[in-house]
Design a protein around this nucleic acid. Structure first.
Lengths: 199, 199
DNA sequence: TTTTTTATTGACCCGTCAATCAAGAAAAAA
DNA sequence: TTTTTTCTTGATTGACGGGTCAATAAAAAA
């Protein structure tokens, strides 16, 4: 019993199913039929709405980036001081939404796909750059520019590394521990730069 | 013109071709024919010597881990003090051999394969554990045990993150900069622990 | 009512690829 | 020389999966 206005519903269902299926299997070797099946439709309909498998993947990735962006924006809205804003950004990375196993697996796989898909690589670079500039814009109010750049790079690498470690099946540290690790790194570098500035 | 004693030669050629082909394409979607072609033989011969594609991949991964282990062992052989040994381990991660784009791409892809292959996951955990215990064994001579565990975890995550960032096509920081980032982290945490111990 | 638009699917085509097999060719052994 | 063992490949098979298409059904429009 077809109804009108199905398109947005089907699209979101497919995107959601894609992320979950990728997370479940931990692989990009997911068939369109699997995705469509989980979303409650035939594979032909998935092709009808997205045109190709690549487009479905790309849309799924955009969704993940959008969700992360919103998460960060919400947290930044109630943060005033530079330090509070730094905390907001970092905590966004470790929110329940972002630190979900399926999402982490998807992140890892998108890194892989970025090696062959220029579109995906472009999206990943945009995300990375935004995270970096966000961090730097807070940090420059606390330390000098070169130090801010360095600290932001370190934070970014550390967060990526933590994500990667959580992508491996098997018991990893809790997100509380790893989150503390990031804040610890931030504190250490900030204290050092202040001591340098005072000298 | 078949000669006897080809097996070891063919095997190493296939393993080497696998790593290079994976690195070149940045993907696990590499056909046995591609690998065998690069190694100068037919795909049937690759199957003859390895039995299956999975076995070829697994052998390639073992090779990478073995090379890393040797790299670390060589550097540790001439390191005496705990600090020198820490430097040796970290520098092994950033040696030309290990920090090669093909090798980094292979690392990333093996993380992916670990999600679906218990054998690969097992190998990765072994490597990670060895790196961790190596770091900890040096660190406990400089700081207390909990701190050593924490620092080792941080170093591991940071190194993984740097690798991940270098896996993305496009200009990343030089390895000199990133290596300095790791040593900086190590210095900062060590200084802090010494100050704590002194208090 | 008739027509058009949207939604939906099963069946199908075509290409790819892992894995197999039988057969051939060269060296070593008998 | 004959036989056996090792090495090698072209051809083939069987499965799988992305993408297309014609056909159907319901809703909306005319």
């Amino acid at each position: 019993m077809p109804k009108y206005g199905m398109e947005p519903i089907r699209r979101t269902a497919l995107i959601d199913a894609t992320i979950r299926e990728i997370g479940r299997t931990g692989s990009l070797d997911v068939t369109v039929s699997q995705i469509a099946g989980r979303a409650g439709m035939s594979s032909a309909l998935a092709h009808h709405y997205f045109g190709s498998k690549d487009r479905i993947f790309l849309a799924a990735m955009r969704q993940i980036l959008t969700l992360f962006g919103e998460e960060a924006r919400v947290r930044l809205a109630t943060a005033d001081t530079p330090r509070e804003r730094l905390d907001a950004i970092i905590n966004a990375c470790f929110s329940d939404e972002q630190f979900d196993p399926d999402i982490i697996a998807a992140w890892l796989l998108f890194y892989v796909q970025a090696q062959t898909s220029p579109d995906v690589a472009r999206l990943l670079r945009i995300y990375r750059k935004r995270l970096h500039t966000n961090l730097v814009s807070c940090l420059v109010k606390l330390v000098n520019k070169p130090a801010a750049e360095r600290i932001a790079a370190g934070l970014g690498a550390l967060i990526d590394g933590i994500y990667l470690r959580h992508a491996l099946p098997g018991k990893a540290q809790s997100e509380a521990v790893t989150r503390a690790m990031v804040f610890d790194y931030l504190d250490l570098t900030l204290i050092r730069e202040r001591q340098r500035a005072a000298a």
